[in-house]
């Protein structure tokens, strides 16, 4: 299925929103106003958006510690996310969750997750619900290259095959888990192959090319919606910043990020082929300006938002008690 001009413009705008959200956070974190530690998604935008552009609100995703991009791509409110990251009362999770726990179930966004490998089993459960509903919806489990070494992920892959549920496992291979390279930590050096060995189709794609991710996702969806069980995608990508903000990145060659910003920038690559899809540079420039205004407003809104009231400490633990 080829995307309409409108859908492509929406995808570009989302990728740009994620990029500017993260670039802005990178600066704002240095002011000390943002609590905790933050993992930026900049560099990986084409994966989140390429995948989520195929989904609706009734499809589910589970995310990771590096979740801002997944949230934005799945339609979470950007201003509410920013407030959450600042730990404010009106944040998407009332300031109780923070960067690593943003969720919006109304958008099918079942949560960022600070436990590596915590998400995939949850995605399988969501897919059981999709299958029972029989409405063609699916779940997507986002995870990093490092997550594929976690036992919970193995169990989720196998369970999805056994139950023949519609889960798409998306492994974002950005080359590193924290300060360790993927070629060291993934014994077989082949994440897609690992998923395939569990009995599902799996393909590797260029994670800095929106169109490649989108096409891979279409194939995976066709398989899963056809009632043939799960599928997997390994998207090869990179992160433009450290593992978390403040990471000195001693494990990375000095000019690696600079080179990757040249060759693996999904926004540049999208622009390079935009004309062929009927989108002009000036249209994209206008989207850029709109995105910057959105991000400015989100940051200003977060800074102006009040902190949670102390009484909120003990609410929301149970439904009743």
């Amino acid at each position: 299925m080829t995307l309409t001009r409108e859908a492509l413009a929406r995808a570009y705008r989302q990728m740009k929103t994620i990029r500017e959200f993260e670039e802005r956070l990178h600066l704002e974190i240095q002011t000390g106003e943002i609590p905790g530690f933050t993992h930026l998604y900049a560099g990986q935008e084409a994966v989140a958006v390429g995948v989520c552009a195929t989904l609706g609100d009734r499809d589910y995703i589970v995310s990771t510690h590096r979740g801002h991009g997944h949230c934005i791509a799945k339609g979470c409110d950007v201003a509410g996310m920013m407030k959450e990251i600042y730990g404010r009362r009106d944040g998407l999770c009332k300031g109780k969750g923070g960067s690593m726990h943003i969720a919006d179930v109304t958008k099918g966004m079942l949560g960022a997750n600070a436990i590596v490998g915590g998400g995939p089993p949850i995605a399988v459960g969501a897919a059981i619900a999709c299958k029972l509903r029989g409405d063609g919806t699916v779940s997507v489990a986002f995870g990093g290259d490092g997550s594929c070494n976690q036992g919970t992920v193995f169990e989720a892959l196998n369970l999805a095959v056994v139950l023949q549920v519609p889960t798409i496992f998306v492994f974002e291979n950005n080359g590193y888990s924290e300060h360790t390279g993927v070629d060291y930590a993934v014994g077989s050096k082949d994440i897609a192959g690992r998923a395939r060995a569990f009995g599902m189709p799996a393909e590797r794609c260029d994670g800095s090319d929106f169109h490649a991710v989108h096409a891979a996702m279409q194939r995976a969806l066709e398989h899963a919606r056809g009632g043939r069980g799960p599928a997997a995608i390994e998207a090869v990508t990179t992160r433009f910043y450290g593992h978390f903000e403040g990471d000195p990145q001693l494990y990375r060659a000095r000019d690696e990020v600079r080179r990757q910003r040249e060759s693996m920038d999904c926004l540049k690559r999208f622009r390079d082929s935009a004309a062929a899809h009927g989108l002009s540079a000036s249209e994209l420039d206008a989207l850029d300006a709109a995105v910057l205004a959105d991000i400015d407003a989100a940051v200003a809104g977060a800074k102006a938002s009040p902190p949670p009231a102390e009484a909120e400490l003990t609410t929301d633990v149970y439904s009743s008690y």
Partner: peptide, 21 residues
């Protein structure tokens, strides 16, 4: 443990890139 040294498989060749988180 994870990253008790760090740097394995990294592109800089720095073998103790972390020394533990």
């Amino acid at each position: 443990g994870e990253d008790v040294s760090g740097g394995a498989g990294g592109s800089s060749g720095e073998r103790e890139a972390s020394g533990g988180i």
